[in-house]
Every structure is written in structure tokens, then in C-alpha cells.
């Protein structure tokens, strides 16, 4: 067997080290996907409901036509849904962020009450990956085309 030049030995060592490290990072990140997640999807929350005294986050899409203003004027009720079709009703009293609209992403911080209603004490809006000027969006609507990539929450 011929011996490799020291330079090539070092090159192979560095390549193996780099591969092992990035592989370890990717593997670790992949293994953490349920722990490092920032929120529960509705399907995850329904499958394994958190205790009602635990503060958790619920994230998903605001269901179309589900936002209802309550009689007191500050409380709103809406439904968070995901691509699996799971739905969780949410109640929130306070100021909503600008991006909080129907058919858009939302992250609610709060607790899941025993009745199955999620009581939020903070709402964060989630933006999707699409960037479209207002005028163009209207144009898409007029044409009735779904030219936008509809970005759902990633699982």
C-alpha cells in the first residue's frame, strides 16, 4: 500500500471532520424537531392536549370566515386550522397585529382550557414566504387565478 502524502491525509481528515460535523448538526436538529418547535399545530394539540395550567403556543392558519368580534368589543374568537383539517377554537382579548387576517398564519400564546377552547393572552402573526405587491394581488383576484403559492405552516 502506498502511503498518502501528508497534504492528502490532512485533506481527507478535514473533509471527514466537516462531513461528520454537519451530519451531526443536521441529525441533532432533525431529532429535536418536536422539542425545538416553537408551537403546536392544531393536530398535534388535539392528539396530545397539554395540561390546562401549562402555557403553550398554538400555530396554524386562521380559518376563513371564523373571526368573530364578541359583544364586549375587545374579545375576538376564531378558529386555527392546519393542513390535516384539525381545528382549535381560540379566544383572545387585546390588540391584534397588523398581519392577523383570515387565511393567514398565526401563533397564539396561552392555555388550552378543559373545554377545548384555547385562551390566548398574546397573538403573533406569521408571514408566509410569498411577497406580492398589493396591485398584483388584486389582479390575481380579478382573474380568479390562484397564482399565489399558498404557504401553510410547515410540519
Amino acid at each position: 500500500m502506498t502511503r498518502l502524502a501528508p497534504k492528502h491525509q490532512r485533506l481527507i481528515l478535514a473533509a471527514v471532520a466537516l462531513l461528520a460535523l454537519t451530519g451531526a448538526g443536521l441529525g441533532g436538529a432533525y431529532a429535536l424537531r418536536s422539542q425545538a418547535s416553537y408551537f403546536y399545530l392544531p393536530a398535534q394539540m388535539l392528539a396530545d392536549p397539554p395540561a390546562s395550567d401549562r402555557s403553550v403556543r398554538l400555530g396554524g392558519m386562521v380559518e376563513a370566515g371564523s373571526i368573530q368580534k364578541q359583544a364586549d368589543g375587545v374579545t375576538i374568537a376564531f378558529t386555527v386550522t392546519d393542513q390535516h383539517g384539525a381545528r382549535v377554537p381560540v379566544r383572545y382579548a387585546g390588540i391584534v397585529p397588523d398581519l392577523f387576517v383570515e387565511n393567514s398564519g398565526v401563533v397564539a400564546e396561552g392555555r388550552l382550557l378543559p373545554g377545548g377552547v384555547f385562551e390566548a393572552d398574546n397573538l403573533l402573526a406569521k408571514h408566509d414566504e410569498n411577497y406580492v405587491p398589493r396591485e398584483l394581488q388584486d389582479m390575481h383576484k380579478e382573474q380568479g387565478g390562484a397564482a399565489l403559492v399558498t404557504g401553510g405552516p410547515q410540519t
Binding site: 460535523l21 451531526a24 443536521l26 408551537f39
Partner: peptide, 22 residues
């Protein structure tokens, strides 16, 4: 450099507030 693929995958594998790559 171990952190770079983690930054890249953070919005795909974990439910995150930040949107996925455009």
C-alpha cells in the same frame, strides 16, 4: 460550521415563527 445547516433547516424541520425560505 455545524450551525449553518441548522440555520437553514430551522424553518423547515421545526415549527417556527419565521417563514420558510422564499
Amino acid at each position: 460550521a455545524v450551525n449553518l445547516p441548522i440555520i437553514n433547516r430551522s424553518v423547515v424541520w421545526w415549527n417556527s415563527l419565521h417563514q420558510p425560505a422564499s
